[in-house]
């Protein structure tokens, strides 16, 4: 327990099933404050589901998830009381950015960012706007404040989505394949924003196929396959000498696919 207290995120033997299918099969992972953890793995390996469980978007069947020592989710057969859903929702500890942006299309960029601070935190309009403008400045979108998302490029939408998530001052940011839906030339600007966040000490859990980002920014890389964590190591080691055969096979396939056309970023 003393060890758990220092960890910002503790994922403990988590099992997640959809119907009869086991998507997470006893996953344990912990993240220190300020750490950037990149999760890689083939599609269907459970990476996104892991993030969704952390964000309380999915219930888990077994195990526990703690954030900053507070119980976020637990399986039915774990001892102790169930987490208080409303209290957990209001703790604002997790921010999440999605592959499909999920900006609110009927609101302007500014309104997208201020909605939660105003409605959830009860922040005054002027205060929320000042906060939003500071965040939009950080992601380079001050001039787009009154524009609706449909008029933004994919990269701009994703940066607006990052600003929106930051507005609730989360302790940890989850990134779920946030560059996968982007045109190649727009990927860089989003990754740059994420690097900036990492440099400022944000704790991040990043599911991505951008190996360049993983190599440069991650403190640790986690390789997942078939609902389980196969290997966890610093990027320098996992990319040059992976311990597990499955990790090696995955990385080789990935490099083959990217081939000579690999972009440098």
């Amino acid at each position: 327990m003393a060890n758990e207290a220092r960890k910002l995120v503790v994922i403990d033997r988590v099992v997640k099933r959809y119907g009869g299918e086991t998507v997470l099969d006893g996953v344990s992972l912990d993240v220190d404050a300020g750490q950037v953890m990149v999760v890689i793995g083939p599609s269907g390996s459970g990476k996104s589901t892991l993030l969704r469980c952390l964000a309380r978007l999915e219930a888990i069947q077994k195990g526990r998830i703690l954030i900053d020592g507070a119980l976020v989710a637990k399986g039915a057969d774990e001892p102790g009381p169930a987490p208080d859903a409303a209290a957990a929702r209001l703790s604002h500890d997790v921010g999440m950015v999605f592959q499909s942006f999920n900006l609110f299309p009927h609101l302007t960029v500014l309104e997208n960012v201020t909605l939660a601070p105003r409605r959830v935190r009860g922040m005054a309009a002027a205060e929320a706007e000042a906060l939003a403008m500071e965040l939009l400045g950080r992601v380079g979108l001050e001039d787009k404040r009154d524009v609706h998302p449909a008029r933004l490029s994919g990269g701009q939408q994703q940066r607006a989505a990052i600003a929106r998530a930051l507005a609730m001052k989360p302790r940890i940011m989850l990134f779920d394949e946030v560059t996968s839906a982007l045109d190649p030339e727009l990927v860089g600007e989003v990754l740059k924003t994420m690097r900036g966040l990492a440099e400022q000490g944000m704790t991040m859990l990043v599911v991505t196929h951008e190996m360049g980002f993983a190599r440069d920014v991650a403190d640790d890389v986690v390789f997942m396959d078939r609902g389980a964590i196969v290997e966890r190591a610093p990027p320098g080691r996992i990319f040059s000498q992976p311990a597990e055969a499955r990790t090696r096979a995955f990385l080789e396939r990935l490099l083959e696919r990217e081939g000579g056309s690999r972009r440098s970023r």
């Binding site: 964000a55 929702r89 604002h92 999605f98 999920n102 909605l115 409605r119 989505a161 929106r164």
Partner: peptide, 25 residues
Amino acid sequence: RGQWDASQVLGLSPWQRLWWVVLPQ
């Protein structure tokens, strides 16, 4: 579905999700 997800992670209650995000759309 992503609209519900995004507003849930932002901390909006089920009614707030409906009122501020889903119903206007």
